[in-house]
Design a protein around this nucleic acid. Sequence first.
DNA 1: GAGTTTGAAACT
DNA 2: CAGTTTCAAACTC
Length: 695
Amino acid sequence: MDTPDKTQITPTSSLSKFEDSPVFKYIDSLSPIELAKSRQSDNVFSSLAFLSPSSLFPSPQISCHRESRFLVKRHHFSAASNSRVLQSGNESNTSEGGSKAVEQSDLYDENLGFLNNDSSSKGISSDLLDEQLDLVTELPRTLKYDCGSPDGNLEPCDEMFKNTSVEVAGQERSPFQRNRDEWEERQQSFQNERDLRKICRIKWSEESAGGVAIVSDVADMLTMNSSIIHENTDGQDMRTADSGTTSFISTMLQFPLDNANNLENAESGDPSCSCKQSEFGEPVTDQTPGILSTCLLDKLVVSDSGLKKDDKGEKCNQSSHQRSIRRRCLVFEKSPGFGLHLNSLPNIPKGQNPLSKSTLSSMKRGEIPHDKRTVVTENSSETPATFGGNEADDNSPEKKRQKFELDEESAACKRCNCKRSKCLKLYCDCFAAGLYCIEPCSCQDCFNKPVHENVVLETRRQIESRNPLAFAPKVIRSTDRISDSWGETNKTPASARHKRGCNCKRSSCLKKYCECFQAGVGCSPSCRCEGCKNSFGRKDGGDESESDGEDLEACERNASEKKSHDIVINKDEEYPDLSVASSDISRLPFAYSGKLAGSFSHSIRSSPQLCTNQENGSLSDSSLCQPKFDSHLQAIPEDEAPEVLKHKCLPPVQKPTSPNCKRVSPPHRECSSSAAWRSRKLILRSVPLPSFSPP
DNA sequence: GAGTTTGAAACT
DNA sequence: CAGTTTCAAACTC
């Protein structure tokens, strides 16, 4: 910034264009751009470094995602000029692209109440434009995540943004101001709608090789979210925003797995990946899109708070997306714990919550890709033909199964039938799932409705105080690589076990009375069943191979037929210390939701609001938090995620390190210098996140 | 649809 | 923690 060149080469409104011009090239060849560029780059990043890394990246997971995001984005910036976001900038109208970036920046500042474009807006070397623009585009969006961190530290992010983007923003702002209002207005008007759409779009994006294509949308969402947070000044809204953010983060932490799974499927030509091929045709190793999709989903909940209304009128056939989101929102934002929302979605009875199949499809990359089918189906209406890349193999068994399940789910639309519990006990599937009862329910004297929100929450609180794991996922899905207490039986992607184990006496674990059987998982040593004949695997280590192939399919179908409750990814492999515990819970490193904080949970824990319910939980329990998934939302088998992604996505440590349930950023997350930043970016590609060793 | 069976949840 | 009761889903007829 202090280089003479910066003043000499004043950026114009179309810097990118200038850059491409012969004159520019000529100047470039003459000027000591190399040095200036190097310094400038460092300065840019140094400005970032000035901020406390911890403040900027309070969440290791978030940082991880952001960084990976950077990697991908930068990659595409340089290599892919046809990305949707940047295409304008890389095509004939380069200034446009830069302008958009600036616009984003401006909007971002405005949303945050910071308009600080006058500082150092002239000290920029033209040859840095590409990088500047890159940063301008990346940082604002990327930093949004940080802004939405549980810590709620928005300013650092903003500062960071200012330091990096202000220079350009200050110069090109005016030409785009007129578009800003329109843009913002559009955001407000179609916020919810967009959220929904974006979920699908991002879903596609997360699975698309391009990844960059969705940056714009994501940025919009992020900006919008930020705006929401700031605009809502009352405690209620603020709280909601925080909650949403927290959830969003928690989801972010979780979704990498999904993404990883997606990647794998994409590479294998999975039908569900039909719309995830990018124009570049290269797989995305960045889980950010996936994260975003999830984030958006959660964010929807937050932003949807204003739309909160009685679900009673909701019909199964109604706009499934919106309704589902609303339902989720209701539970989610108000829930004292996170057992609701994500954790509960899985339990949504078939056909009850269509959204769960679409929006949440991204969450249910379980052993079966049917979720993806859902995604494709849901996106089909909104996903442009261009999104379609790798056409699905409609004839694949997974596809068939998915269709089967979809039809099955669509056909049914029932919910609880409680008569005496008022739907305020775990007997009630809706309540247990963290959902309000809706019309399809046949319950009587139901209190599990928005109008009784306080009662619901209080009851839930009580239940959780009694049993922190009450709303925890009931099924743990482990990886085939894991050699856990279940031994060799745990070798298939579908391998999973009931967290607590069943206690069947007469059903021989061959009927749905048995939760293990119902979930389509084999019994484990944790089960206290008698005469176990579970076809999915006997607790004595019996034949689980049956769960493979057709039996597996039947199993999963069975699970999907009913609430298969929550399936949790067993992260034993990465958290062996937690995986071998004798108790079921201890076997769930980050399984669970209500109280347990797992790999995902950290994010959850990061929310003060959400943490309140975890007070009673032990440390280990807290570390096991994880959203639960129903049969349709089964967690992604770890084994299905590429190694790199797994490491990348999975939070390094799920153990709570902060008394107040907040995660403590690992040292390696800190970037004290631009060099570190850069090197870290490189390292992130190859170094598994679980390793806390700094670059 | 009514009644029975079953096992989880809740209670003591 | 164990035993009992309550509850609602699963199941049978």
